[in-house]
Design a protein around this nucleic acid. Structure first.
Lengths: 129, 129
DNA sequence: TTTGCTGCAAATTATTTGCATAGTA
DNA sequence: TACTATGCAAATAATTTGCAGCAAA
């Protein structure tokens, strides 16, 4: 019988306390006794499998994790400084039902984010390339 | 002066011919003379930097690439068989302007997909975990 | 001649896995 | 006792990088 161990519960609390998705490193920073990274990865896998958490990436090589309680949130991801802002306008539901019907698809989640340049990084936009 | 080399042009053609995003391996399959993977990665980086292509991931450890010509397309991604379907309802523009203004953010792209179970994999949904 | 593109091999990095140990019902 | 969680070290896999040779302006 699988259990929501102390570590898993702590990680879930951290995810629920954050408005934006966190990396594994950021989760570890927020844990007092620093568990092994593999334990964190395994905990996150468990939380995903039990539908308590969700992982996504913004095109970066590493993943971000968020709780379902905070979800559905949607994000602005800065391509330069990799900062994240959340916004809470969700119109996915409007088309979700139609998509499920038209495509014979069972939708469980969605991911929606914009990428670009945040306030600080706007001046650097034109410099790219 | 950087150039759209033959390889880069071929890769762009492949991306533009595909309705759904492709992995690096899938791109390589579609190229007659099989170039080195690192050359493909470098070409894709170039295409991204010049705003001709875009990469995303569906939570998988590997990335998918698509052309801007096909973009904005949006996807249904099956968590079980990893198949992709595209749909073309886009309502991002409606809120994009508002988000840019409210958050002092310059939006360049967006990524939007639903995950779940496709027609074939629906019977397996309940079996998970 | 200079600059940039490609192949090859090695390095890098996030993530996963095997195994031994510790914790818990 | 039996089962699950964790730490540690090693493995894996996608991607990146250094460098030499090649092609093009």
């Amino acid at each position: 019988m699988k259990k929501l161990s102390e570590l898993r519960q702590h990680i879930l609390n951290i995810l629920e306390a954050s408005e934006i998705p966190l990396t594994v490193e950021q989760i570890r920073e927020r844990l007092r006794l620093k568990p092994n990274l593999s334990s964190i990865y395994r905990s996150l896998l468990y939380l995903e499998e039990t539908g308590k958490a969700l992982s996504l990436s913004f095109g970066t090589p590493f993943r971000f994790y968020c709780s379902y309680r905070e979800h559905p949130a949607h994000y602005l991801f800065c391509k330069r400084c990799q900062s994240i802002q959340a916004f809470h306008v969700c119109f996915a539901q409007e088309i979700q039902d139609r998509l499920e019907l038209e495509n014979n698809f069972t939708i469980t989640d969605h991911v929606f984010y914009f990428t670009g340049y945040c306030q600080r990084c706007r001046p650097f936009e034109k410099i790219q390339l």
